[in-house]
Each structure stands twice: as C-alpha cells, then as structure tokens.
C-alpha cells in the first residue's frame, strides 16, 4: 500500500532562522508515531506545514498523493497546540460545528466519549477547566474517521486518569489505514502505545526508529534514550 505521507527536502526559514532543514520523512499507514524533539526543534513548524497552515520555503509534502489543500484537510484531523474554538460555545454546539465542517465526523462517538469523561454537554467552553477544555478538543478531533491524526501535545494538561483514558481511546480508534502522529514531552507516558518515534533536532531528522528497536539496541526506554541524546 502507498505511504500515507511523503515529505521530501522540506525546509522552512523565518528570515535567517531555519526552523525545518531539508527534512525527508515517510509516514506509513496503520502506525502510531511519536514526534519528539526538544523545545524549538521544529516540531510545530513541521506539523503546521503538513496541515497547510504554513507554506514551505522549499521541498514538498504529499498526503494520499495530494499537496496540502482542501483534499488533505478533509482527511487530516489536527489538534493544534492552542485552542481555536469560540469560548462562548456550548460543548454540544461544538459537536454540531464539527459535524457541519467534517464529512467524516462521528457524532455518536463524540457524545459517548464526552459522557465517559463526565463532561457536561450544555456547558460553555469558557466555564470548563483548562484540562477539560483540552479533553473536549481532543474528543472532537478523535471523533473523525480521518486518515491522519496529528496531535500537538495532546496530553500535557490532563490528569493521569484522563491520560490513561485518552491513550486507550487512541488504541481503540486505531485502524490499519490510518496513522496517528503525536508530539509530546511526556514520552514515558506514551511510549508503550507507539510503534515508532521520530526524533528531530534543529529542524533535521535525527532518528526514525521502532520503539522496540531502540530498547533492543540501546537497552533503555525511549524516554531514557531521549534524555541521553538531548542532554543539555
């Protein structure tokens, strides 16, 4: 089967600063992939280019054979690092909003996850705690039947019990045609659910390897390996 995404020679410069530097990457289908790197390594810039929110300075991105545009946006479910939803909207209105926007949105799945986490449907977003807001956004994103889920720091603000629920949700929603790419600093919490990890540093690809291969080759967890590679 063809790769889900192919990234070639991707570069993004902000003036003299090069955020992403000649990056080549193939994202296969049916994988859960961790995008790891220290602060300022280019993770979010890469994610934004895949989502068509930033234009590359050079290089190409193909998702299902299409460059970022309407065709790819319909197939990518993206959780940005910051909220973009109207804080005055009610949770149930947000579900309707997503339903209008995305053909692949599964409303029943959204409501069932909201109930499992005891999130009141009629509450306005602004009345919810920071962690609960994050849960709502993640639920909306994970309720799509997308090909590629890109989650930028999905678990940072939520409590450990909700984190477990979210990870189980990711496992349960897994399907062999879709891939999930998530960036996070909380590596040890998620490494058991990852197939492979992508390490980037200074906008360049450092390692792209299966988790078990890192453990076999280096005799340490991905978390420990990361701390070694990026030691300050």
């Amino acid at each position: 089967m063809e790769a889900l995404a192919e990234i070639r020679g991707l570069t993004k410069a902000y003036g003299n600063t090069i955020a992403v530097n000649n990056l080549n990457l193939i994202i296969p289908r049916g994988r859960i992939i961790g995008l790891l790197g220290p602060n300022g390594s280019g993770k979010t810039t890469l994610i934004k280019m895949i989502n068509g929110l930033l234009t590359p300075t050079a290089g190409s991105i193909l998702i299902n054979g299409f460059p970022p545009g309407p065709e790819t946006k319909a197939r990518i479910a993206y959780l940005p690092e910051r909220t973009y939803l109207q804080s005055g909207m009610k949770v149930c209105d947000l579900v309707d909003f997503f339903q209008d926007f995305y053909e692949d949105f599964n409303r029943d799945r959204a409501f069932s996850m909201l109930s499992s986490l005891n999130i009141p449907f009629t509450a306005q977003l602004k009345t919810l705690s920071k962690g609960t807001k994050e849960k709502v956004q993640l639920i909306l994103v994970m309720s799509r039947n997308a090909d590629l889920f890109i989650l930028d720091e999905p678990i940072a603000g939520v409590d450990p019990a909700a984190r477990d629920y979210i990870l189980k949700t990711i496992i349960n929603n897994y399907n062999e045609n879709a891939s999930i790419m998530l960036s996070t600093h909380l590596i040890s919490d998620i490494e058991n659910i990852l197939d492979e990890v992508i390490f980037i540093r200074d906008g360049q690809l450092l390692t792209h390897m299966p988790v078990d291969q890192i453990r076999e080759q280096y005799g340490q967890s991905v978390d420990a390996y990361f701390r070694g590679v990026f030691a300050c």
Binding site: R31, D164, I171, N172, Y174, I193, D195, D212
Partner: peptide
C-alpha cells in the same frame, strides 16, 4: 488485549 495492556496494537 492491546487496550487492556495499554500497548500499541501492532506490538
């Protein structure tokens, strides 16, 4: 089984 063990289904 993967959900019970909280591990990747492919693993």
């Amino acid at each position: 089984l993967a959900a019970e063990a909280s591990v990747n289904p492919n693993t």
